[in-house]
Design a protein around this nucleic acid. Structure first.
Lengths: 225, 225
DNA sequence: CTTCTACTACAAGAATTTGCATAAGCTGGT
DNA sequence: ACCAGCTTATGCAAATTCTTGTAGTAGAAG
């Protein structure tokens, strides 16, 4: 899933990003409220994790702002405060769940699962751990990819890229989108890493007769099953 | 099962932790009430064992606090007092069972079994006491591991780690997840203890031709049978 | 059909990160 | 104080990531 983490404390954000990525999610980190409203508001996230205490804006305010702008993405609030009052006001203003720091990572995971369950039922393709396209087989639980029975050794970045493409199967995704989702880069810094990694992937998962990644010239790439 | 023991008397806590671990449970010890509310409250325990006499807070108060915070984990109270009054108030405030010290370990076990019976029925796969993977043999009842008939001497931490990996057999578990489940650490990701212990475990339970623990690059580790 | 341009593919190597082993420092229980 | 077990620190090899540079290609324009 694509998750936006809004958190200015480096320790916690680092922990969150690392942990969520290790669980197979595509995570983007944003360190202040303003940027959320400016840059990230138009991206379709599966989940937003929002710290209630931010340097530039109260988390509740941001929550309100998002809901006002008709962003109905599930939002999970994080807080160091353990007060009931805060919890209530967060839920009142439209948060979907609330978690106090420090928390157990497995609990975060289970709450994320609960929050996005509806979504998962709706799109029955994604929650499957096992995916297959022709000769290509992906096991998301074991992070294992096989091609015609033979194991394919992908680096973490290559794997992430593949997952992103597969999650957007049939849709053309731009380099900027890929950079955003897989690398967490939000501005164009004139790099061609995406091209390079597409090339790596192709060399590893495609054969002469079996192609999965298609170039859409001037736009980006598309995965076809 | 994952059990939290809240007890400040070393003699008793040691006895409890050792005994429960020997019965194949994953036990975390907490020596004061404050830490329970701060650090351990969001972890999904299967059972909490709570001494009624703690240095920093009355056990009943802690019990109340937990229930107030909607923690519905089964709680078993321990007390040196034999007074009926205490027993009643503990049960009134939401404890699920009550046991007076000194007690026979067998009684504790049978009460734990009663309290968590539903849970045990639910997960019929895990409670097996005897596990075998190739040459590797784990007896959870006796807390004993053998490799090709030869006894393997694991430290408590090593054993806990092994059990966690085995319980997630075939699934990749991240370092953060391991740190959470085996160490109870929620916010420190600048440590390499997990790596070190994986290394210890491997040196003790693996041979040239027999491998059980597989590294999933950039993600974590996976146990394969 | 040829030329041109913008875009794409890929190779090679530098820089960084990761995983692992080992060693050294700590800690709590006897 | 000692010992076993736990944690932190360090160094190294290998893997991964990313930049740079060049060759190649599709498609528009002449």
């Amino acid at each position: 899933m694509q998750i936006l983490v809004v958190e200015d404390d480096n320790r916690i954000s680092n922990f969150l990003v690392k942990g969520l990525e290790e669980c197979g999610h595509l995570v983007t980190l944003c360190k202040n409220a303003e940027d959320v409203l400016k840059q990230y508001i138009n991206i379709e996230w599966d989940l937003i994790i929002l710290d209630i205490m931010l340097a530039d804006m109260d988390g509740i305010q941001l929550l309100q702002a998002l809901r006002y702008k008709k962003v109905y993405t599930p939002i999970l609030m994080l807080s160091a405060l353990n007060s009931v009052q805060d919890k209530i006001s967060a839920l009142d203003y439209g948060a979907d769940d609330y978690l106090t720091k420090p928390f157990h990572f497995d609990e975060l995971i289970s709450r994320i699962r609960a929050l996005t369950r509806r979504r998962q039922y709706e799109q029955l393709e994604t929650p499957k751990a096992e995916l297959q396209f022709g000769q290509l087989h992906i096991n998301r639980e074991q992070y294992k990819v096989t091609l015609a029975g033979q194991s394919v050794d992908l680096s973490p970045r290559e794997y992430k890229l593949l997952i992103y493409l597969v999650e957007n199967i049939g849709k053309t995704v731009s380099r900027v989108q890929i950079l955003n989702a897989v690398w967490g880069i939000t501005f164009d810094n004139h790099t061609n890493v995406v091209d390079v990694y597409i090339s790596y992937l192709r060399s590893k998962i495609e054969k002469q007769d079996e192609k999965y990644i298609f170039t859409v010239k001037g736009v980006g790439y598309m995965f076809k099953g």
